[in-house]
């Protein structure tokens, strides 16, 4: 097994792909909207917490951040019951969970980004007659691309890699890839080579994102330790 491979066999990938492709597709369908919506919410929140503070916003902010660290075991029972009660189940429910529990980190990243923007930029906008949303749309949004990339990658990666929410919120037809891979690996009848091929398939999307946008990924991670 540790000898050099005697030729390359793609059949393992064909087999793994045929088993896993519906679940890869599920992951994409859930992760892409979740990442997009998360970043929009984070951007608006960050803008306000950085530049348009309201009475009490400095008190609320740490309470939002704390949500980033909680062990989800402490909200799991209510989450499952609540989602079932409001009828948002399957991939939609999973995407919603990622968006909501993503609020702390996305707000933090954008807040730190916008806090670094000079106040003069906003004043200039005000002098030109722009209102709060005008300043956001015309001045800050166009220069927010780096922050958007950070948050999109971060949310894409963490939603793609999540297992805990997926396993409680989805059933066997709408499992994302992590749950499907774990179940495939758990069954003894699947050969090691097929399992490894499946692992690579499951890791590939985040790896591709990482190879092209890795620098931003690092920034997202450092934001996760609050050192934005």
């Amino acid at each position: 097994m540790w000898n050099l491979p005697q030729g390359i066999a793609f059949d393992n990938y064909v087999e793994a792909f045929s088993k896993l492709s519906p679940f890869l597709w599920n992951s994409f369908r859930m992760v892409i909207p979740a990442a997009l919506i998360s970043s929009m919410i984070g951007s608006i929140n960050g803008y306000i917490f950085a530049k348009w503070k309201f009475p009490g916003s400095d008190i609320i902010y740490p309470f939002i951040l704390f949500g980033m660290f909680i062990p989800y075991q402490s909200i799991l029972i209510p989450l499952v019951r609540f989602m079932n009660a409001i009828g948002v189940t399957g991939l939609a429910g999973l995407a919603m969970a990622h968006i909501i529990y993503g609020i702390p980190i996305t707000t933090l990243t954008f807040r730190n980004y916008y806090a670094g923007m000079p106040q003069e930029l906003l004043e200039a906008g005000k002098l030109d007659g722009a209102d709060m949303l005008g300043i956001y749309r015309l001045i800050l949004l166009p220069i927010s691309i780096p922050a958007f990339v950070v948050v999109l990658i971060w949310q894409f990666t963490s939603a793609w890699n999540d297992f805990l929410f997926a396993v409680v919120l989805t059933g066997n037809t709408d499992w994302p890839i992590t749950v499907a891979l774990n179940n495939m690996a758990g069954s003894q009848i699947i050969a090691w080579n097929v399992q490894m091929a499946g692992s690579l398939l499951a890791a590939l999307p985040t790896l591709i994102v990482y190879i092209f946008l890795g620098r931003y990924f690092l920034r997202g991670m450092l934001a996760g330790s609050l050192k934005g």
């Binding site: 990666t157 793609w160 890699n161 999540d162 297992f163 992590t178 749950v179 891979l181 774990n182 690996a185 090691w192 399992q195 490894m196 499946g198 692992s199 499951a202 890791a203 985040t206 790896l207 994102v209 990482y210 190879i211 890795g214 990924f217 690092l218 991670m221």
Partner: peptide, 21 residues
């Protein structure tokens, strides 16, 4: 730096399946 950071982008499930082997 990229190489050492690589594992961070991978899910614990994938890491787990590989380390299981």
């Amino acid at each position: 730096r990229s190489l050492f950071l690589f594992p961070m982008a991978i899910s614990y499930i994938v890491t787990g399946v590989v380390w299981r082997w």
